[in-house]
C-alpha cells in the first residue's frame, strides 16, 4: 500500500516539468542512457563514459588517486569551516585556533579532520605516484599526465607548507623561518644564494622578501600564507585536477596490467 503510494509520487516527480528540465531523460536502463547520463553531467563528464574491467580492480589502482581526491574534498570542506572563525593576523590567529578547538561546537573534530586529511593526502599522493610508476602508467601516451601529476604533488606540498604557519604557533613559525631561509639561499633569486649578491639582491628585494611581504616572519607573512593557502593554491590545484582527470580519460583510461 505504502509502496504503491511512493511509486505514484515517484512517477509524478519524474513526469513533472521541473524534473525534466534538470535531468532531460528518464532512467530507462539502456547502455546508451548510461553513457549519456555520465556525459551530460557537469561533474561526471570528466570521467570516462566507460571503463575497462581492470581499472576498477582495487589491486591494480589501490584507488589512491580517488582517495587523494576525496581527501582534497574533505580539506576544502573542513577548511571553509575553519575560515569562519579564523582571522589571519598576529593578534588573533593563535587565539582563534585555540578558540576553535576548545570552545566551538565540533571545532576540535573539524580542525583535526583538516589536519589529518592534510597529512594523509601527502601520503596518498606518494602512494598514487608509486602505483603509477610500478604499473608503468607514466609511459606514452600518458607522459604529459605524469607531469601534471608532479605539479599537483608540488601544489600538495606547498599547501601543506603554507597551512603550517596559519596556527601561528612555535612549530609553524620556525618551520616557515627555516623554509624561507632556504629561499634566501636560492641561486640568483635569494640574497645569500650563489650570484644573489652580485646582481644586487638584498634582504629587502629578494624572493624571500616577496614570499614574506617583509624581511621577517611577521604579520604580512601570515596574511600571505593565508591567501596562498585558502585562495590561490586551491584554485590552481582544482584547475590542474580537472586537467589530470580529463587527460586520464583522453589517454585511454587507467593503464592496463603489463
Amino acid at each position: 500500500m505504502v509502496t504503491e503510494q511512493l511509486e505514484k509520487v515517484k512517477e509524478y516527480v519524474k513526469e513533472s516539468r521541473v524534473y525534466k528540465s534538470m535531468f532531460r531523460r528518464g532512467f530507462e536502463d539502456t547502455p546508451r542512457n548510461r553513457v549519456l547520463a555520465i556525459m551530460g553531467n557537469v561533474f561526471l563528464h570528466l570521467h570516462p563514459s566507460h571503463v575497462k574491467r581492470h581499472s576498477v580492480k582495487l589491486t591494480h589502482t589501490w584507488c589512491m588517486g580517488g582517495i587523494t581526491f576525496l581527501l582534497f574534498l574533505v580539506l576544502c570542506f573542513t577548511g571553509v569551516f575553519l575560515c569562519f572563525y579564523y582571522h589571519p593576523d598576529k593578534i588573533n590567529a593563535y587565539r582563534d585556533m585555540k578558540y576553535f578547538e576548545y570552545d566551538v561546537p565540533f571545532g576540535v573534530v573539524l580542525r583535526n579532520m583538516h589536519r589529518w586529511a592534510a597529512h594523509l593526502m601527502v601520503i596518498t599522493v606518494w602512494l598514487h605516484m608509486t602505483r603509477v610508476f610500478m604499473t608503468g602508467a607514466y609511459k606514452p601516451p600518458r607522459e604529459f599526465n605524469w607531469v601534471v601529476g608532479v605539479v599537483l604533488l608540488v601544489l600538495t606540498l606547498l599547501l601543506s607548507f603554507t597551512g603550517y604557519l596559519l596556527p601561528d604557533d612555535q612549530l609553524g613559525f620556525w618551520a616557515v623561518t627555516v623554509g624561507t631561509n632556504m629561499a634566501r639561499a636560492t641561486p640568483l633569486l635569494g640574497h645569500e644564494g650563489p650570484f644573489g649578491e652580485q646582481i644586487g639582491a638584498t634582504a629587502y628585494n629578494d624572493i624571500r622578501f616577496a614570499l614574506l611581504g617583509g624581511s621577517v616572519v611577521g604579520g604580512n607573512a601570515l596574511l600571505r600564507a593565508y591567501i596562498w593557502h585558502c585562495v590561490a593554491m586551491p584554485v590552481t590545484a582544482i584547475i590542474f585536477l580537472a586537467v589530470h582527470f580529463w587527460r586520464t580519460r583522453k589517454d585511454g583510461g587507467t593503464s592496463g596490467p603489463l
Binding site: 622578501f209 616577496a210 617583509g214
Partner: peptide
C-alpha cells in the same frame, strides 16, 4: 605588487 615599499617592522 609582492614587494611593499613601506614596512612595519622593528
Amino acid at each position: 605588487v609582492f614587494f611593499p615599499r613601506v614596512l612595519f617592522e622593528p
